[in-house]
Design a protein around this nucleic acid. Sequence first.
DNA 1: ACCCAAACGTAACGGTAATTACAGTAGTCT
DNA 2: AGACTACTGTAATTACCGTTACGTTTGGGT
Lengths: 218, 218
Amino acid sequence: MSPSDSGPADTPTVEPEAGRAELRRAAFLKAAREVFLEHGYEAANMAEIVRRAGGSLSTLYAQFGGKKGLFEAMIDARVSEITTQMQLELAAHAPLREGLTRIGEDFLFRQVQPENLNFFRLMVAQAKKFPEMAEAWSRRAQEAVRRALAGYLEDRVAAGEIRIANAEQAASIYFDLLRSRMQFRTLLMPSYVPTEQEVREQVERAVKVFIGGIESLN
Amino acid sequence: MSPSDSGPADTPTVEPEAGRAELRRAAFLKAAREVFLEHGYEAANMAEIVRRAGGSLSTLYAQFGGKKGLFEAMIDARVSEITTQMQLELAAHAPLREGLTRIGEDFLFRQVQPENLNFFRLMVAQAKKFPEMAEAWSRRAQEAVRRALAGYLEDRVAAGEIRIANAEQAASIYFDLLRSRMQFRTLLMPSYVPTEQEVREQVERAVKVFIGGIESLN
DNA sequence: ACCCAAACGTAACGGTAATTACAGTAGTCT
DNA sequence: AGACTACTGTAATTACCGTTACGTTTGGGT
C-alpha cells in the first residue's frame, strides 16, 4: 500500500487491470449522470459529457459503445448504490409513533432532494425506452425501504403495540401516505421545494392516519 | 339552420370564420397528441404528425408557429377537457363506505388508462421545460376531483356518519391512498396494466384505512 | 364565373449531434 | 529500451429534423 510501490501484480482486488481505465470510467459516469439528469436523455450531449469529464470522445465510445450504453451504465451504477443510499436509519425498538416519525422524516427528506427528483423524472420519461432499467430501479428502491420498515413494524407487533397482519403491505401503505402528495407536486413543479416544516407536517399527518387506520385492514 | 342556407352572417356562434381551418386544426391537434404521447416531446417528429393528420407541413406551421406552439396548444386543449373528463360520478348521498368505493373505483380506473399514464409521463418529463403547463395541468386535475370528493365528505359529515374537520385535506389524503402505489408502478412499468381486480382491491384497502384513520387528524 | 386567401407539396436550408477515422502521445510490462 | 496497448485531439462523416421558401391548387364568397 506504499505510494511508491503500487504493483498491481499482488493486488487483492478481483479486477486484473485496475487504475487508469477505472478512473476514466468513473469520471465519465459522473459527468454522464450530471448531464443526463440536467437535460434528459434525448437532449443530453455526448460532447458536453466529455467536456465535463475531461477525457476524450474516442475513449468514451471505446468504453461504453455509445450514448445508450453510457446511459445504461450510469443507471446501473446508480441502482447498485441505491441499497446503500436507501438504508433507513432504523428506529430499532423505539415506540411506534416516534419510530414512524423518524423513519418517515428520514425517508421523505431524502425523497425531495433535487437529485432524487431529477432521477425520478428521468426514469419516468425513459420508462418506455428502457423498460428493464426503470423496473430494476423502482423494484430495488421500493424493496429496500419496504423491508426495512416492515421489519420495524414486526418488532412493534411483537412488542404488542399494534396489531398488523401483513407487515409488508402495511409498510407499503405508510410510504404511500408519506410520499404521494409531495411526489405529485415536486415532480410537476420542479421549482417547488418543500420546506422542512412542510415535510414534518406531512409526516405527522401520515403517522396519525396510519396508526389510526392500519388495524382496519385485519 | 337549413342545410342549403348556412350563411355565416347570422350564425350565432362567436367564431366569425368556422369550418375548414377548424377541421385542419382539430386534425393536427389529434395527431400531435398521439405522437407526443408516444415518443415524448424531443423525439416527436413534425413530419410524422403531418403524415397522420393529413394536412401539409406549411399549414401546420402557419397555424401553430412551430413545434413548441403546437405542443402548447395540444396541452391547452387537454387541460380544457380535463374538467369534463375528471367529473366524478358523484355518489350523492350514498353511505360513506359505498360512496368512497364508487368514487375511488371511478377515479382509479380512469387513472390507470394508458392514455392518462402517457400524459402523466409526458408532463413529468417536460415539467422543467414547460413549467406553467405542468402546473396548470396538475392544478386543474387535482382541484376538480378534490373539490368533488370534499363536497361528498361534507355531506356525510352533515349526515353524522363521520367526523372530519378539514374536508379538502381529507379528500387529498384519500386520493393519495388510492393513487400512490399504482401510479408509482404504472409510471415506471409502462407495460404493466393493473387488472380490474387489483384496482378494486386497492380501492378496498384505501377505503378501510381512510375510514379507520381519518378521524385521527382531528 | 371570378378572385383571393388559405391549403398544399416538395425541396432546400441550417443546425445539431451521434458516431467514426486517423494520426499522434503517454503509460506499462518485459 | 522497446513494444504494445490504451488514451487523446480533432476533423470528417452521416443522419436527422425543425423550419422556411415557393410555385401550384382549391374552395368559397360575390
